[in-house]
Computed example of a mutant assay.
Amino acid sequence: MLLLSAVLLVAPATYGETYIAGQFGVALPGGLSDGDIHSSFLLPGTTHGELELSTSFQFGGKVGHYFDSTRWIGLEAEVFYTTPHIDQQVHTFQNTSVPGVTVSGTFQGAYFRVLTLAPFNLMFRYHKARLQPYVGVGPGIFFARITGEGPAPDSQESTADNARLGLNAKVGFEYYVSKHLTAFAEWKFNYARFTFDENQNLFPFPYGLDATYTMHLVSFGVGYHF
């Protein structure tokens, strides 16, 4: 136990460093939550219920740098991809001007893909041990794409795209296996507001929607520091 404690707590020489890393993990979506509906078939002010997203695999990479003068502060850029597809489910609509009245339709399901680009996360770490906790926060650019949703499985394929600015936040631990090699585990939270244009293939009527996208991600990876 003493030996293990010494290995974990004795800090390697710390210095300004640049690193690259690969990451993989699982995305645990919060969903596409309630928002406004855009449709020529519905009254203005119509809103929709939450669309549930499926759990998916996540992979990507990152590059960063910690500074010589302040070794506990750094900047990091990362990119990762996930596919939290929309399962078949009942989709509800309501309007505040007609309280108590809702309309429901079966959403046949769709492929939903999100590419996240975080151009700069501000990073803070405890750098005086081999096992280093860290937190990071910064803007994220979320490229979302929905394809294949329609009134029936053999309907004409439809596509909707989005690119929105949102939030990318994280907390994790990194362990220095050696001076240059590290392993890490982290939790990330993503938030963005999407607006999808009206889609003529949607059932029971063509519509577009606003939706709040929330995603929790658990990532693991290996980094090289130089």
Rank of each mutant, 00 (worst) to 15 (best):
I20F: 15
L115R: 10
P29I: 03
A129W: 06
V90C: 11
T147I: 09
F120R: 03
G223K: 04
I86E: 00
F59M: 12
K128R: 13
A110K: 09
N168D: 15
T18N: 14
G31P: 00
F226S: 03
G109S: 03
Y126S: 09
N199G: 07
V63R: 06
T182V: 11
Y175S: 07
N168V: 10
P206Q: 00
G172A: 05
L122H: 07
F93C: 04
H48Y: 08
T147K: 10
S219M: 15
H127M: 10
F67M: 07
N95Y: 01
A211S: 10
L217E: 11
G45C: 08
I141A: 07
V7K: 12
V63K: 04
A77M: 06
P204A: 00
A192E: 05
S69H: 15
F107C: 08
D36W: 09
Q200V: 12
V98N: 10
G172T: 05
S155M: 04
V137M: 13
E186I: 08
S104D: 03
A185V: 11
P139I: 08
G31Q: 03
S69N: 15
A211I: 08
T116L: 06
Y175G: 07
D197C: 09
N190M: 07
S219D: 13
D68C: 06
Y191F: 14
Q200S: 15
A163I: 11
S39I: 00
Y175M: 01
A185R: 02
F194N: 08
F143R: 09
T182D: 10
G30P: 01
L217K: 13
D36I: 12
E78V: 12
T82N: 14
A144F: 01
T83D: 15
V137E: 05
T46F: 00
G35Q: 07
A183Q: 10
P12T: 03
D161Q: 13
A185Y: 01
S56A: 14
A6N: 14
G31N: 05
D34H: 14
R125L: 06
S219A: 15
G105H: 03
E50Q: 14
K128W: 13
A183F: 13
D154P: 07
A169I: 09
H38T: 15
Y191R: 12
K62N: 05
Y207V: 09
Y176G: 12
N121W: 06
H127C: 08
G140K: 02
T214K: 02
R145I: 10
V101R: 09
Y207L: 01
S219K: 15
E50A: 13
A144N: 00
G16L: 06
G74W: 01
L8K: 04
G61W: 00
L53D: 00
T70Q: 14
R125V: 02
G136I: 03
T70F: 14
I73L: 12
S69W: 14
L3W: 12
E50K: 15
G61H: 05
P204Q: 02
P44S: 05
L8A: 09
K170Y: 10
G35M: 08
T46G: 01
Y207M: 03
R71P: 05
